[in-house]
Design a binder for these strands. Structure first.
Lengths: 210, 210
DNA sequence: AACTGAATCTGGACGCCGTAAAGATACATC
DNA sequence: GATGTATCTTTACGGCGTCCAGATTCAGTT
């Protein structure tokens, strides 16, 4: 019955690529209003579509969040790839990877929260994190080898990679707390603070081991 | 109008200590049904009280969660205190602290999630974590000193303490993922896996530093 | 070009949620 | 015993995730 779709509104009944539009709308909401405002209805509203429309593209809200999270992991992957390749030396690659990880999390805090919320709900990281040379996990492992880890001890190598991941994730979640504002100021910025924590991971590790 | 409160039900109109009962009910729900089921209404239901009753004891849902989280931090504090005091030597105290931290998180995953969800929402850890000799943060710092950290470098000491906290929190959140089930099996249990990750934090740290 | 079936979107409904306001009930103090 | 205050209930509102029936459009056949 919409006879005069002459005006600029011109929303056709079929959207074209609503799935894509929904993911974009979700990311827009995440960045502007934060994770608490990310309701399925709000996403549909933002995309200019009825509250039930998303159900033709996602089984439920969780599946939409999975799609959003997946983009987050992809972006993180690329940030770490760039950090690893741009490192001045293989030696310097490891801290660069860590800082890139934490900076991604601090630059996209809402997205990062969605990524880990979904992972915790499923009690598993996305599979593709561990697959392929370019995956963040494998890059971390290979960088550890390049930095001197023993490649002939697969279990130890995996444990060290997990340790690195734990340190980065922990710092990503904790680094934003107000309690550490004075340190960021004293060290001259957030990134310097992150680097400082990573550098002092050795003090902690020595306290653990010998 | 309740003329015959003879029966065993006998719920008086005034509860007595509803605040306490609500916190307990919340923790019961957390342990049995998980964080997703923790609605204010469900808590009120579990405590046998109307949906609006909690508002006489907590400003909103967040304040109730804060109270629950606070109990969590207290329990964690005690677990770490016990771990620190029962350590066979000052040297062994550090890994014991870490394992105690992670084990607490894995034994009370829902509670742990509430604790950090509230902290992230407020972008700050609870203040009392940093106050007093018995606080978890100070205990970690002092244990680091006992394990050989330089006490005359306050910034470095703080960074190392944060590093330790990051490692523990990261492992607490990541350690439950299915991807690592094979490692737990290979190493003979979850606690051994945790210990293994902590021990290999040094490999990661060496990769970072020299 | 008209018909048909499948894909997509709307509108409305259900039960749950957090929260607020107004009224009922019990306690405390005088 | 009366009165004020703290506590609890009832009712209500808007928002949420999700389902269902119907409207609309698209794609393929003839």
């Amino acid at each position: 019955m919409r006879e005069t779709e002459s005006a600029a509104e011109a929303r056709p009944y079929h959207h074209g690529d609503l799935r894509r539009a929904l993911i974009d709308a979700a990311r827009r909401i995440l960045e502007t209003k934060g994770p608490a405002a990310l309701s399925l209805r709000a996403v549909a509203r933002e995309a200019g579509v009825s509250p039930a429309a998303p159900y033709h593209h996602f089984k439920d809200k969780g599946e939409l969040l999975d799609a959003v999270a997946d983009e987050g992991w992809r972006i993180l992957n690329e940030a770490m790839k760039a950090a690893g390749e741009n490192a001045p030396s293989p030696r310097a690659a490891m801290p660069s990877l860590g800082v890139a990880y934490v900076c991604f999390a601090r630059e996209h805090p809402a997205l990062y929260r969605v990524m880990y919320k979904r992972s915790r709900d499923k009690e598993a990281l996305p599979e593709h994190l561990h697959e392929g040379e370019d995956s963040a996990y494998c890059r971390t492992r290979d960088t550890l080898i390049a930095a001197g880890a023993d490649p002939s001890d697969p279990v130890g190598l995996e444990l060290a990679t997990i340790a690195a991941w734990c340190a980065a994730h922990g710092l990503a979640e904790i680094g934003g707390f107000q309690q550490f504002a004075h340190l960021k100021e004293a060290l001259g910025g957030e990134e310097a603070f992150f680097r400082g924590v990573f550098e002092h991971m050795g003090v902690f590790a020595r306290g653990l081991n010998d």
